[in-house]
Nucleic acid binder design. Structure first.
Lengths: 201, 201
DNA sequence: GTCTATATGGTGATAGAC
DNA sequence: GTCTATCACCATATAGAC
């Protein structure tokens, strides 16, 4: 399926989006280079012009770009120290879920395909490190809330895992055509976790 | 690696556990029949004696048995109407997470490999139907709590998805050798979600 | 930058001996 | 019930024309 107005040259980004779409339907190993190529009206061989290292490179860049996108959203909020801890937490969760809901194919890849980042150990390690840094952002926000006396003394690592599990899962089940919009889902889940930590006055 | 005292015949269950272990390390498509066979000291060809339909059948049975195990734990609690809504909810979440933490390989398969249940449409549909029934159990518990006036008026489907996301995710990150035991993790997460719904008095 | 054609390697599954 | 040997197929990646 063409994603561009007729016969316009495809670029790297088009291919990465196409790849994420196919990965979501068939999984990384179930996806043939020909499947990705067909999605952008190319043939399998042509993909190697854009990605010399082949399928692994495509996966690597889908994940790297996807994680960078999600991180950017959340990091901006976490670093904004004009916000109170509970505002910061709510906005971070909201932005995180919105980013995933607006890119479900990439979001699903972040959940399901990270495990297939096998080859190129160094690229794999640097990706996992950035993923840990992302998780660290949330831990920091929760920690700040506890220190400020507005959050309960939850176990920060476990609470963070619970939150990440819920949020990541949105990328698996959310459909833009569903009952609720991305905004509504993001609000509701942010509300759930804020209620879970907030000390009621 | 042998899982049995020397040279004892393997049975279906041994193979399913072995398969789940390999799936967790390599993913379904990354797993060769020879890998599963090696885990129980057999050769690839021998597996077809136990599972005539091959790799798909092994996956299907790993998931079916795994889901049945998890469902059994939770269902017993949901049907126990001597419990108050909040007790019922806490025990259900606790039991669910414990079941996953005690079988991480199967738990990971339930998250990552369901998507690979491609062939045999009827088997696939019946599995997905049972998974929906499991989700329905949680919705029911939450609904009961709201009706009883002890839970907030959360959006039940979304709250349930958030809870399932957190719980499923335990099967992805939990390691028995980690800082906290399965019991501690289960308690903590049950606490998080109970705090999220409970109306504070 | 995209194509076609093909080399290459690998894996699920089968057949038949033991 | 498990083995060995092998078939048949498929997908990644490459080479070179256009």
């Amino acid at each position: 399926m063409a994603r561009k107005p007729a016969d316009q040259a495809v670029n790297r980004h088009d291919i990465l989006i196409a790849a994420a779409n196919v990965f979501r339907r068939k999984g990384y190993h179930g996806t043939k280079m020909a499947d990705i190529a067909a999605e952008v009206d190319l043939t399998a061989g042509s993909l190697y012009h854009h990605f010399p290292d082949g399928k692994q490179q495509i996966l690597r860049e889908v994940l790297t770009d996807g994680l960078a996108m999600v991180t950017a959203e959340v990091q901006a909020i976490v670093e904004d120290n004009t916000l109170t801890p509970d505002e910061k937490f709510r906005k971070a969760v909201y932005a995180h879920i919105m980013a995933l809901a607006q890119n479900v194919s990439v979001a699903a890849a972040l959940v399901f395909e990270t495990r297939n980042l096998l080859e190129d150990q160094s690229a794999r390690d640097s990706y996992l490190q950035r993923r840990d840094s992302f998780e660290q952002l949330y831990r920091q926000v929760i920690h700040e809330g506890i220190e400020a006396g507005v959050f309960r003394h939850v176990d920060v690592p476990i609470f963070t895992k619970a939150l990440l599990g819920s949020n990541n899962w949105v990328g698996v089940w959310f459909r833009p055509t569903g009952r609720l919009s991305g905004e509504e889902v993001a609000m509701e889940i942010a509300d759930v976790f804020l209620n879970a930590v907030l000390i009621k006055t």
